[in-house]
Nucleic acid binder design. Structure first.
Lengths: 111, 111
DNA sequence: CCGATATTTGGTTATTATTGAAAATAGGAA
DNA sequence: TTCCTATTTTCAATAATAACCAAATATCGG
């Protein structure tokens, strides 16, 4: 990359944070409004700690922010643009029906 | 995830394919028009094989398609929506300035 | 202070990603 | 055919992710 290196690094950072089914689910859920971790966990078939870590990833990417009130920690989207962003993904996914010979799911180094 | 599991898996698949600086660079470049691998390699500080693999990842995700003409292989975007998609990322990145690890306190209007 | 609840963190393990070098493949040229 | 040239694939090593469980932390209520 001769130019726009940092730019793409930043882009990639945000994309990477979102590139997980559970994290997308969390973002979707939080788009409805802030929510505490225990409530989120109810909807996800995974360990409490796992959910907590996913939330941390999104927070570190700048997508979420958290606030502790009492014993609960509430997470919320830091900006509504993320939703628009997801909509874009949606369109892309719809349009990019991979014409696959075998599989289109692997990202690298497949068998 | 009780619902929308597959949907988010598909979303995540596309996001994951894009979540790499080099691959974003390739998508950007190809938005200007189709290009053969050797030309792309010139702009990227990486091994030929590395670039080829990144292109394969994007192709498997349905984002690119390729066509061999002579000894050259040309890659191109499969749909223009990807560019719009990148624009969305751009907006998100601009808005979501990631917080630092340590955030002593919130200063109003901190930018 | 003590116990209960909510959340994060550390340890461990398994899986997946990334890369350069080298080997394999494919098509054009000599 | 044999040699190039462009590209892909394999190999081997390393790094990064993701998941679970258990332990640590923090806060509330008594």
């Amino acid at each position: 990359m001769t130019d726009s290196g940092d730019l793409n690094k930043n882009r990639a950072r945000v994309l990477k944070a979102l590139a997980h089914p559970t994290r997308l689910f969390l973002v979707e859920k939080l788009n409805e409004g802030e929510c505490c971790v225990c409530k989120l966990v109810e909807h996800i078939n995974a360990d409490f700690s796992t959910v907590s870590r996913h939330l941390a990833v999104l927070k570190n990417a700048g997508i979420l922010e958290d606030e502790k009130r009492g014993q609960l920690v509430f997470y919320r989207l830091r900006c509504p643009c993320v939703l628009k962003f997801i909509k874009c993904i949606e369109e892309a996914v719809r349009t990019l029906k991979p014409k696959r010979k075998k599989q289109a799911g692997k990202v690298a180094g497949e068998e």
